[in-house]
Design a binder for these strands. Structure first.
Lengths: 236, 236
DNA sequence: ACCTGAACACCGTTCAAGT
DNA sequence: ACCTGAACACCGTTCAAGT
């Protein structure tokens, strides 16, 4: 009945043996809670009720774990987009592609730490290859040559997988309190940035903070590219 | 004359005092030689002929250094694009933008480790803000509303700065030696990927390795986006 | 004002040893 | 076959102490 006893033998389920799969799932859980940098051999071991050194029996080294969880997330993406079914012949390629990518995006919203890892390890993951293979299939149905489809995947870049690293986020620099003061100070150095923020604030007076709707911007960029590709498809 | 003496007092120039600027320049040099992960307080100190702890007098912590070198590279970008001069009124906005971005890209080719840092620290760099401000100016000259220009920067994403993280790189997975064998094995699981690689290899028999010309793909994606934006500009 | 030595709490990883 | 303790070489960072 004492807390001490309960702590010495944590939970009854913690006796199941380690495995590569359990290590990877633990890593995803830890990253979901504290980001990639929270993934530590010792932290994973804690999570699994084991010692750090025990992990090396199931994975070669930490990099191996990082490659592994990219594949785990990519499988989650494939599961998510697998639900989406619809025609992809001819002009329908575009909505098919759009739906797949937008539902892939949902997965990355659940794992905001994952994009950084994908940039380093995507090419080692079979699940990522399977994902791209499916996208190529859709484009083929739409009448793309392999050559154009190849360019298309490069043009989409990480957007094909459902995420875009945001390079440009005004409002990150200027704080939330002295809005007008900071804006005036900025107007001198960065007139267009200041003008833009003023216009957007005018359009939507409610959004004094959080200038950019990520979903809107993602879809804007995605549609811009898909529309351009569709034009090329038709003129080919 | 002995090597010992020479090693004890390395080079005569190593007496100049430390400074935030010297620390940042050393960090860029170290990263150029060994990537971001080579940036270590002790390694930087070595480079500067000092002790690791001395750096803390000039920078707050390692993150501060990483933010700092993003700004250093962004200034290098601004210097590079500053050379480019040309009209940007009306339809000329597109070539002006294109030239700026392509010459920004040259800087990142010299610092291939930098993109990863920009994704985390771009919004803290005044030089990055200045760069974006200039791009906005070009688009304004072209007749963009601030609203459309804002969407445009999001659509371009990292491409606006001159780099694109390559998500998709076939040929990374399949090795260089057993080409046909690996391709056959792949054909079962990833028919479209295999088909695409076969077609591309057919088009260009010389490129058995290195399927994708990065410069070509970058320009393809860039032009696709710029053309789409130009259409929106005209119909606005 | 500027730099450093010693020390701390953490890493990833190896290896011989336990069961 | 699977797990671990002790140990190593490395981190970033603090702090009192040197000049």
């Amino acid at each position: 009945m004492t807390q001490v006893t309960a702590q010495a033998e944590p939970t009854s389920g913690s006796r199941i043996p380690l495995s590569r799969d359990r290590v990877l799932r633990a890593a995803v859980k830890v990253a979901d809670e504290g980001g990639v940098e929270a993934i530590t051999m010792r932290r994973l071991a804690d999570e699994l009720g084991a010692e750090a050194m025990s992990l090396y029996y199931h994975v070669a080294r930490k990099e191996d774990i990082l490659e592994g969880i990219v594949d785990v997330i990519a499988r989650e993406v494939n599961d998510a987009v697998g639900q989406v079914r619809g025609p992809s012949e001819g002009a329908a390629w575009k909505t098919a592609m759009r739906q797949r990518i937008l539902s892939a995006r949902q997965v990355f919203l659940r794992h905001p730490w994952a994009p950084g890892l994908f940039e380093r390890h995507a090419s080692t993951s079979p699940a990522v290859l399977r994902y791209f293979d499916a996208l190529l299939g859709i484009m083929r149905d739409g009448g793309f040559s392999y050559d154009l489809a190849h360019h298309a995947l490069h043009a989409l870049g990480s957007r094909a997988l459902g995420f875009a690293q945001e390079m440009f986020d005004p409002g990150d620099g200027a704080g939330g309190e002295e809005d007008t003061a900071a804006l005036d100070a900025m107007a001198g150095q960065f007139p267009h940035l200041a003008g833009m923020m003023a216009e957007i604030a005018h359009d939507d007076p409610d959004s004094t903070l959080g200038w950019c709707d990520d979903q809107t911007e993602f879809e804007f960029g995605l549609d811009l590219i898909l529309d351009g590709l569709d034009r090329m498809r038709q003129s080919a």
